[in-house]
Amino acid sequence: MTVDPRRPSRRGSRRRAGSSRAAAWGTAPFALYVALFLALPTAIAIGTGFVDGEGAPTLDNVAALADPYVLSGFSTSLWLSALTAVVGAVIGALVAYALIGTDPNGALRASIDSASGVLAQFGGVMLAFAFVATIGIQGLVTVLLRDLVGVDIFADGVWLYEAPGLVLPYVYFQVPLMIITFLPALEALKPQWAEATATLGGTARDFWWRVGIPVLAPSFLGSLLLLFANAFSSFATAAALTSQGQSIVPLQIRAALTSETVLGRENLAGALALGMIVVMAAVMGLYALLQRRASRWQR
């Protein structure tokens, strides 16, 4: 052990206790930062739902969560998230399956990893542009379908700028997110399990149906929940696509924040935020449970 010349040597235990107390103080700046910019805003967001414009406590805003306008926002958000999560999870899992056996350090993997990362995390506003250029009124696919096949995808009116128009852009960022989150689980399948299956006379199909899929099920469901949460909390694509729409909850929060009064209530944004937090807490709680289950096989 070294003797620090600046500090008189004391009994080890006391010194360790002192240094760990000093170390605990070292976490204070980060703790303060998180308290100010994560805990406080979250508390305010939830708390404002319970006060009126003058700051007096009220349940009026929370009661507004039962309003048909808000209910339709939540139901649109929920089905949009569920639909795109399921489609994204299935396609993403297929791509992850197709990547088994490719070199993890190869160029194919590297470009798919990066492209997935960009589309899953960076998309937002660009995805709105991309889909206006693709299936907008003058979009590439719209025009090609109209001129070559004679199909007018907007025969029943333009749906791109409403909730159904969000399905394709959302799937476009859900699939990459699935690839990112599900591929590690696939890679954690132990080669020994495949060997054991083969030794016992099982085929590749037996391996997948009897071992692979049962083991991966919790990870798949966990990723599905993550995708759901991702779509549910997504704002940028919808906001860039529809400047006025209030079809999903995040857009209703924008309306409530920017126009002061929606449904004649001043703090509706807080109540909507509370509703979103409740949904997210339920989804992420379930996710944590599934992760614990999934990690059993990844040791």
Binding site: L38, A229, A273
Partner: peptide, 21 residues
């Protein structure tokens, strides 16, 4: 737990509380 928490709190929710901050 704290570091992964922001995944569960949508930015659109955070912004409601960030406005007064």
């Amino acid at each position: 737990f704290v570091c992964l928490l922001p995944i569960s709190i949508p930015a659109i929710v955070l912004v409601v509380g960030l406005a007064p901050v």
